[in-house]
Design a protein around this nucleic acid. Sequence first.
DNA 1: ATAGGGTTAG
Length: 976
Amino acid sequence: MNPLKRIKTLAISNCKSLLYSSSSSSHHFQNPSSPSKSHLYSSFFCTLIQTFLSCYRFTQALNSFLFMRSLGLNPTVHQWNHLLFRFNASGLVSEVPNVYSELIKCHQSSNLFARNVLIHAFCKMRMLDMALEVARDGEADVVSYNTVIWGFCDNGMVTSAVGFLSEMFKRGVGMNTISCNTLLKGLCDEGMLDESESLMNMFVCWGIGRDIVGFNTLLSGHCKLKAMDEAMGLVESMKGEGISPDVVTYNTLFHGFCRVGELDKAEGLMDVEKDGFGPNAITYTTFIGGYCKRKQLDKACLFYKEMVTSGILPDVVTYSALINGLCKSGQLLKGYSLFRRMEKMGITANHVSYSTIIDTLFKSGKPRELSIIQGEMVVRGIILDLVSHTILLDGLFKTGMVDEAEKVFKHISSLQFKPNHFTYTALIDGRCKAEDLKGAELALSEMQNRSICRTVVTYSSIICGYVRNGMLDMAVDIMNKMKDEHVFPNIVTYCTLMDGFFKMGKLEEALDLYEEMLKEGIDANKFIVDVLYNGLRKNGSMKKAETILRYMLEKGLPLDCVNYTSLMDGLFKQGKIEDAFKLELLMKNLVPDVIFYNVFINCHCLLGESGQAKSIFYEMKNMGLSPDNATYNILISAHCKEKKLDEALELFHEMNSTGLMPNAINYNTLVGGLSQHGNLTKAVDLLNEMAVAGFCPSPSTHRKVLLACSNLKRADSILQLHEQMVQMGLRPDRAVYNALIHVLCTLGMTQKATVVFKEMLGKGIAGDTMTFNALILGHCRSGHLDKAFDTYSQMLLVGVTPNIATYNSLLGGLSAAGRMEEVDRLLHEMQNKGLAPDGITYNILVSGHAKISDKKKSVLFYCEMVRNGFVPTIGTYNVLISNFANVGMMTPAKELLNELQKRGLSPNSSTYDILISGWSRLSNETEVKRLLKEMGEKGFVPAASTNRSIARFFARPGKKKQAQKLLSKMYNVKDG
DNA sequence: ATAGGGTTAG
């Protein structure tokens, strides 16, 4: 039985016997009959409490203490002091003041030891005022003051700490080496190396010599600043003073070399010196940790083996380092099983081991395992430190649990912790990713106010936040600010900003940054290559993109799957399909991931090869890769575009059945696709499902759904569906209102459109050109020209600039009403505003004048139109031709027919009708027969009016019937 | 009881 269990069993049986023994209960214990028995009980309780404390069973420890007090047991001063010490050392620091006051209740005499522990506890809780009060207000010795000095140093208040030396002198409390060494550490922690050396000299003057601990502290200070030459120099001067380096000295040096990545130097030193100093567990752990951080697990394992064969037992720190190494190199399972094996070996996991596992679980997205581990940690009563809390904060933000993360931050501040730059950086990064830029800015200024240093990661995080929100100016401001503070941008900073500039289409700025980065001596890595390649190609500089990529490949920069994915996308979209395929073969060395396959599938979809895309989809599944939401979305979207709606739906159901929950994008794609291709019923069903799932339609989906209503003449559904989509969370912005107004107007529902327009204005959203255009078009289509012109005037009045579409609507409306004089006037107005007619305008002008039989003007505009490079529609040609054909001018009609064919247009059914009627008018049987034949060959059927013309002009008395017979034989025309 | 070295976070 292990000691804990034994004591527990003992405790329970003792408590039971105490509580339920024959005679009258609690009274008996409050006044224990024999003093020796009382002594026995209290010493028993003290042991029990201390055992609980050493196993971090804080609740039980506290309950036992309270129970002991309630029984009126009174331990000796020695026992009390020891208890106090254990409370302070175990982590249950917050109870120290209470235990101390209980102690004072029992033993009023002065107790310097207890006071010093109390000072220490107050220091740990950052209650420096209280600590100082205890030290000043009564008996104090060098330990009391050293502890206070330590407390102030530990809170970054070195200057105040140095100040206590004179107070000690005044009170006649002698200083010792520990006073010196404590201050040394405080100064070193602030990077004040010069000051710490002067302090050391000062103490020497006072007759307090420097010792190995002081030297080691100084050495550690140099190592933390990565000043390894100075560190080595210090070891030499130490030897010069007759102090030989010890295991701590070497461990400090090894760690220093590990930190600067010179593990070989550390190892060399170890090989030469190890017989002299005797490596211990910390020595080996330093190397194991160093190699794990560099992901050289094989080397780490070698050290582990050497450690074990040397008979040095690995401890929880050693295992935590190894677990971290495994987890960080992607071997989560191995890391976790080592975590469990360590426990079986009797080494209890501490907050670091747990934090490592929790960090990994957060980052690899394993929520179930995460909650199990967290539960276990709570049950074991493991106390989290600032780092553990930061891990939680970061993990919660990264998994989108913003509120929980903010709670953790509040919790950190409410505990005795002072958030450091890691905490604040995680907070800033998290708030940026949650699009809370104001919050991020607030955190940054809080850091400044609290004088917490901002690192390159801090600034890069907020730069990333600005970039993601398109606020490049702010991002650049931060970049300048950091440079002013001598925090220099690193490759991540440059990468983020370059990416931002490229995404905003600001190619030059991005390339300038690249130049700057190279000038700063930072070499491009695979991330930079990806940003450059994608940025350049997506901004139309394919050649430059390829040049840079080729250069990087020649330089031997190892590219990864992500780079190849971009490359494949680039080659495909350039039409270099063969090369892209070759690339896929090249990839055989690298393992393609889901995203690579997604791009590959998408490329085939872009070529309209959904069949090919699907077979790659199967290949991917055979490779053991699970398609994700994006994979399905690419396929669903492609099938929708090819109007294969059933297959698209099938894919959607397949996704559901494999347990992949559809996301907002999936729903939007499918609802949009179904709407665009006429299946409004299914689209609406899905929209309802989407609402239940809590997703919001995109503005584009909104537009597609409404357009479908309009195309299917389902006017009644438009407003209702619009309302529904707004209920689902669609923000009714200007674009959304424009879509709604446009759809209502195309259906001629201008009154409803006007109501919507007013609602929009009521919400403070002003109409833009699109809004007014939709309304004007609506009024024109429904023949309310006056309203159309009222709207136009209103548009000009509120300062919205009309564009060519505005005028085309108005011109079209006037033209349809035959008001050609006004057309000409408006045309001039338009041209005066610097707007040139486009193809649509010309079609309106040509056909408008033709319709009122103004042959001269219509031909004039026709010539101008053609001269300006616009091709009239077949409809315009028809109006123009009929203008001539109707009055028997068949020569120009014929010429126009030739012209339209020269321009790549083909006559349609109406063209033939017009021409046949024209020739009939002239009784030209040959032409009529020829055209009828040609028309028939093209599968056109003459209109009833054409047949009547033929009949009218060809029918001589008695032959009308014959003509009709002929016609019906040729075309199966029932009636003439 | 107070001072130096190893593991975790952005």
